[in-house]
């Protein structure tokens, strides 16, 4: 898949909108794993995310970034997919920690996914187990640059390659994505 979209296709209005989006990033953190423990220091007085306009939000409807901190079992992957599809475009995904990259210490688990980018369009990965707050802030600043240049278009990729993502999701979730239990 082509990750880069040429920025020239954006109209002036979209460029302006991207300028605003880059400066106000509201994140929804999906804290299943141990990575959540690195977020309080990033938000509070020592590292202070809010000076970049980054803040936590309570619901997927209001959020721009889905921050997935740690491993995803198939059961939680299902809920993450619901959450992601409830978010409003433009939306971005950050995979946080080695577990989302290659499974981390759960590389041979029967129930934990190894690659998040097969199921959701990840814009940025933060490597580490666990990443320090400095790494988190670096990633967010990188995301900010990408949004401003129009490169963070994972949500477009998700819409364009919906079948591919859906097939992967069905494979990992044993043939059913939406359950009502």
């Amino acid at each position: 898949m082509d990750r880069k979209m040429s920025p020239e296709t954006r109209s002036a209005l979209e460029k302006l909108a991207d300028w605003f989006r880059a400066r106000s990033i509201w994140m929804l953190h999906y804290c299943t794993g141990c990575g959540a423990v690195e977020l309080p220091p990033s938000m509070t007085s020592r590292f202070d995310m809010e000076r970049f306009g980054i803040g936590p939000m309570a619901t997927p409807r209001q959020a721009d970034v889905l921050l997935i901190t740690g491993y995803l079992a198939t059961k939680t992957l299902r809920r993450v997919i619901y959450t992601y599809e409830q978010m409003q475009t433009p939306k971005y995904v950050i995979g946080f920690g080695s577990c989302t990259i290659n499974g981390g210490i759960y590389y041979d688990s029967y129930n934990v996914i190894t690659r998040l980018d097969l199921y959701l369009p990840v814009d940025i990965y933060i490597a580490g187990c666990m990443p320090r707050p400095e790494a988190i802030l670096t990633a967010f600043n990188k995301l900010r640059e990408m949004i401003e240049k129009g490169e963070a278009n994972g949500w477009k990729r998700y819409e364009e390659n919906k079948e591919w993502y859906r097939a992967n999701q069905l494979k990992a979730l044993n043939g059913e994505v939406y359950v009502t239990r």
Binding site: N102, G103, Y107, D108, Y110, I113, R115, A172
Partner: peptide
């Protein structure tokens, strides 16, 4: 589990 994981969740 390793074989199952490789088959189902892939490998990077």
């Amino acid at each position: 589990p390793l074989k199952y994981s490789r088959e189902k969740f892939g490998e990077r």
